[in-house]
Design a protein around this nucleic acid. Structure first.
Lengths: 223, 223
DNA sequence: TCACTAATGTACGAACTAGTACGTTAGCTA
DNA sequence: TAGCTAACGTACTAGTTCGTACATTAGTGA
């Protein structure tokens, strides 16, 4: 997550009052605290205490706990969007492109466990904050357009047999990546296997790619 | 979830004091309340109010909010275990057996959204209640043994090419089933597609089966 | 039927928690 | 440099929430 450390914006000398920096600092700490404890478990006082400013400022800039959480989600999804816009796989052949896309998705989930937790938390609250956000409604995903084009190309060249839709394929890839991180604690406790064990990382990454490619290229019975 | 209605245990006339019934009623309501609001969002007073008994009894029988949540998880996992023990797929050929197992898993997730929510919530708390439970540590899953035997048979008969482990295959199947339910709200809000739309149920159920079978039967490059 | 205890209800308290009223000041601009 | 306002801090409150002290009774076994 983009964090605001001491030398906020180089060139400008550190001012005592800096609206942009204060807001960013609040968002940083709030992201951690909400991800750690959930919406109801998070404490506004605790967020304020871990900031260089006070609780007063949270209400001044964000209005309240609910809106703060919404702002946290907006920024978190913004980071994902940016990463997905860097996606550069369309110079590859369809099979390699999809595998690469799956791997990038896999890596991204692994690198952002806080984001995964925020999304889990938001689902417990039935996405009410996303619904309340102007920025996030039907935001979609840049990755989706990429998938759409690769699927198109793969079907035209006869490599892909499956009649999948881009959104469904995205769901399939995401579900594995997301579950591996989001459910690692219960899964580990019940089955004694750590899905995020670094030693198993390559194994699961390959497994995901194999699964998706096998699905897309399998000869299917007439349906 | 097993709910305790008026004619608790037939044959016995309804007593005013009934320890078994009171505890079961508390667990029923607590399951709903924790699943609805999360651990920190749930209110002990609210649980008590929706019961025929009082808050005093929750502390009398369970000790506290934490232990109540643990008891809720224990019972919820118990229900899953029972269902999995009914699993009867080993008379089928390996391909049909795995597909059937995937379908049963799919159906079970769909039918128990509260359980999915409880598991999501427990993951936010890093499975600390499962860790604290004597009943739940390394409980495993009856389905796992079934998967193990089917995989064995499938490999021996040459139908399955993939070198998967039963636990990993279980993770693969669960991830799709779980994500579809757990993340339906954010996914729906962002992509405008309801993963739990009844009209799409058969579609996703087939998709899961196709995916798993394609993975298990794909001709793999030497690895 | 009597006494004993598991089961239960009432009322309360201490600590917490989101949110705010009120006052102050840094830094920019005219 | 004077004045204005966005940015900020302190101290407080009203309402909530987990947990418990204390009193009571239904049902059971001797």
């Amino acid at each position: 997550m983009t964090s605001v450390e001491e030398p906020a914006r180089p060139g400008e000398r550190e001012r005592v009052r800096d609206a942009v920096r204060t807001q960013a600092e609040i968002l940083d700490v709030a992201t951690q605290e909400f991800a750690r404890a959930g919406y109801d478990g998070a404490r506004v006082d605790e967020i304020a205490a871990r900031t260089r400013t006070t609780k007063r400022m949270i209400y001044y800039y964000f209005g309240g706990k609910e809106q703060l959480f919404t702002a946290v989600l907006e920024r978190a999804y913004g980071v994902i969007r940016e990463a997905e816009q860097q996606l550069d796989v369309e110079h590859l052949d369809p099979v390699a492109a999809i595998r690469r896309l799956a791997e990038v998705t896999f890596d991204h989930h692994e690198q952002h466990p806080d984001f995964i937790r925020l999304v889990s938390i938001e689902n417990i609250h039935e996405a009410q904050h996303i619904a309340a956000s102007e920025k996030l409604g039907r935001i979609g995903s840049p990755a989706l357009d990429v998938i759409r084009r690769i699927l198109e190309e793969g079907r035209r060249s006869g490599l892909f047999t499956a009649q999948v839709d881009a959104v469904d394929l995205h769901a399939m890839i995401s579900s594995f990546c997301f579950f591996r991180v989001s459910n690692r604690h219960t899964f580990g406790a019940l089955f004694g296997r750590d899905l995020v064990d670094p030693a198993q990382r390559a194994h699961y990454r390959t497994m995901l790619g194999d699964m998706v490619i096998a699905y897309l290229t399998a000869e299917r019975a007439a349906d």
